[in-house]
Amino acid sequence: MAGSDRLLLASIHDVGPRFEREVDTLAAAIERATGSTRFAMLVVPDHWDSAPIARDPAFQRRLRGWSDAGIEMFLHGWRHRDDQPTGFKARHLTAGEGEFLHLDEAEAARRMVEGRKLVEDVIGRPVAGFVAPAWLYGPGARAALNELRFLLAEDHFRVWQPTDGAVLARGPVISWASRSRARIASSLLFAGVARSVLAPQRVVRIALHPGDTGVPSLMASIDRTLRHFARTHRPAGYADLVRERDMGAV
């Protein structure tokens, strides 16, 4: 049984009409492996300008239903697409999807404000926080994030509160890549190592993406990894980190 002092934070990225079927598959995988519906969804208002939530009432109802069931909703950019994918991070850490890596503060703030309003209007409650696509934040995005006072944010190596910069959890997020055979192999290797190396971590984060569902070996690794950590870490929400901090546990 998972220890109550150790937390497992699972999340599904790129949630939107374009990947509704894949999101269903991943949600079922988390519930099956952990026995819990405590996880987060990262919502993209209009993925690559081809899947606008604003014009899809049926998906809006699904999003509201998930939120009503207790699934945390984060804003995950606006379009998930980087119009100027230059530099090492843009070329090697993502396939042209680091939307907030090169935006200036004004444009980053505009997308954050409009995205937050859209998602909150749909779910009827505040978003849990903001996570940049591909976990990549440029200076403009960080400045906007601080000004807009989102409750939570995360990158590859930490979860923090933009309101005051307090770090609530540290350690690499476990995720899988499906873009090439080499990336599949490396992510399978990393997940295997992580199951041992990250075992002592108080907070373990696991992030799933729609592309994972198309690769059986990745889905098997995801299931194995979720089940492994669910035995030692309690499935929880990101909001639990805030509550712990408020109670003086962080």
Rank of each mutant, 00 (worst) to 15 (best):
G211F: 08
H76E: 12
S175V: 01
L188V: 05
R116F: 07
D104M: 12
R125Q: 15
W66H: 14
A108T: 02
S221P: 07
E20N: 03
E20D: 13
Q84D: 14
L241C: 03
A90G: 09
P172F: 00
I30H: 06
R243H: 15
V131A: 15
L63R: 08
V197F: 13
V173G: 10
L168R: 12
W66L: 14
R195M: 15
R110A: 13
D82F: 00
A194C: 10
T94M: 06
A220L: 13
I123S: 11
L8D: 12
A58Y: 08
R183M: 13
M1N: 05
A128D: 03
E147C: 09
E97S: 06
D5V: 10
V197K: 07
G138N: 13
I30Y: 02
L42P: 02
M219Y: 02
T25A: 09
G35L: 08
F74T: 02
V203L: 03
V15M: 07
D246H: 01
V15Y: 09
E20A: 14
I30C: 06
A128F: 03
A185G: 04
F157E: 14
S11V: 02
G115M: 04
W48T: 06
G165Q: 13
G3I: 04
H80A: 01
R205M: 09
R111E: 15
R224T: 10
P139K: 12
L198T: 04
R181V: 10
V159F: 07
A194L: 10
A144I: 07
G214E: 13
A128T: 11
F39I: 05
R231E: 15
R116L: 07
S196T: 12
E147K: 13
D56S: 07
G35N: 07
G192A: 12
H13E: 15
L218M: 10
M41I: 05
L63D: 01
G77D: 05
D5C: 11
A220N: 12
T225Q: 14
H47Q: 03
G138S: 10
A153T: 15
V119R: 09
P139F: 11
A177C: 00
D83G: 06
P172Q: 11
V204I: 01
S4N: 11
S4T: 14
A249I: 09
H228N: 10
V119A: 15
L226R: 09
R81G: 01
P17D: 09
M41N: 02
P85C: 11
P210R: 05
E97T: 01
R149T: 14
V119K: 11
V43E: 04
R179G: 03
